[in-house]
Design a protein around this nucleic acid. Structure first.
Lengths: 227, 227
DNA sequence: TGTACATCAGTGAACGCGCGTTCACTGATGTAC
DNA sequence: TGTACATCAGTGAACGCGCGTTCACTGATGTAC
């Protein structure tokens, strides 16, 4: 009773119910945030009794961890797919922003308030590195004549974390700036801190990315020496 | 039975107990995050019964709102004091970062995951504008010959929110870049997303602020035209 | 200065609730001969 | 193809818990004459 994918029908059913549980979990989170996520409430929505959930998730924390993993997976896949189909940095920012605005609470589940003492399992941090890997590829090699800034020099001595994806310091720098600038705008926007200010965050992002360090836009590298 | 400040001793006592309650609340939040904040647990720490807290706060939400207000107040005062004593933008960033690292959960109470549907009372948003006001002052007037970027042009048409503190578009732009870049690094740092990357966030911030738009550092304005 | 009264901080019992989780059990589904 | 057995999804009752909040009441503190 196994199909081409090697799944028994029981396994297929399990996966299906698991997915359904997670979807209702997402809906609850979107509606009232993670703290309000209740196993009993989910069970009711799925149409089974509370204890039945324990056939699918070992505990509430286990469910949340699965949601976090899926969120990272979704983001990593989205970014990877966009990059592989030729999207540039600005485009990637747009894709990430779209992903985040699509479900702000999913974004915040990853990048929002951390739970003191919680440490994500290794497989999840591995997925988060996938995102960074795409960014490093997208940032590409810097122009040969790029003068290095103090932070570049610092990065040259502190980049063992990127050994899986060896990149010159200016590329790391560029990726980090992209990453932090985008999150700066995005997290403030999604958290509502721009409320009342009627400017368009998208334009701010565009310009922030237009002036990334070591870009081909902006100024001549020679002018970028400074102190 | 009133003192020079016009507080009766009862009022003084009330203020004192309120402060004590809030302090224990902060300790709980620092230890396990807002969701774990429990009125009964606080009461126990303060040394009184649960219901007694209701003499000081109308509800759990009321207490949390007070904490949020205090957090904003503390940040606004800190930033204002630093600026008034001559601190420049980089210094302000340092002060804000210090403030945040001092109690990350306090930072995240303001800038972290928003609670769907929650809207802060007006007096709190007013305090948040105080912070922005200081930034606008600190960003000062741009050099006269500054070419305007597309985002500057956009801001010229969308800055009614800053009418209380009239500032030219390039100044708004500069303040927004400062604000978003700082938060980008800070929120990722405090949430632990730099774990495993051994670079120093302070250096990244320094360089991000060194290349703010319309600055006197970096390049000649003429080179900043670009498209 | 002393007495009568009002204010109000704090208590203890109680309410109702929903939570996560366990357990023993039923019944359907798939597996092996 | 049919039967015997193993697997496992799902149930219902129950546990223990701590939560926020209300209520009637006590006793101390401050106020007014």
């Amino acid at each position: 009773m196994t199909d081409p994918v090697g799944q028994s029908s029981r396994e297929r059913y399990r996966a299906q119910v698991r997915a359904e549980i997670k979807q209702h979990a997402w809906e609850q989170i979107a509606a009232a945030g993670v703290p309000a996520l209740s196993l009993n409430a989910i069970a009711k929505q799925v149409g089974m009794s509370g204890p039945a959930l324990y056939r699918y998730f070992a505990s509430r924390d286990d469910l949340i961890t699965a949601l976090i993993r899926d969120a990272y997976r979704s983001l990593a896949d989205t970014v990877r797919a966009a990059f592989d189909s030729g999207t540039d940095l600005l485009g990637l920012a747009g894709v990430i922003r779209e992903w985040a605005r699509d479900d702000p609470q999913r974004y915040f589940l990853i990048y929002g308030t951390p739970v003191p003492g919680y440490h994500a399992p290794d497989d999840i941090t591995a997925i988060s590195f996938e995102v960074m890997a795409v960014l490093l590829e997208a940032c590409g090699a810097p122009p040969a004549d790029t003068r290095t800034t103090p932070f570049d020099a610092h990065l040259r001595d502190h980049r063992t974390w990127a050994f899986d994806h060896p990149a010159p310091a200016p590329t790391l720098h560029r990726a980090l700036s992209f990453w932090t600038r985008l999150h700066g705008v995005l997290s403030l926007e999604l958290a509502g801190h721009f409320t009342g200010m009627e400017f368009d965050p998208e334009l701010l992002i565009a310009e922030e990315l237009d002036t990334l360090p070591h870009g081909d836009r902006g100024l001549d590298p020679a002018d970028r020496v400074s102190g």
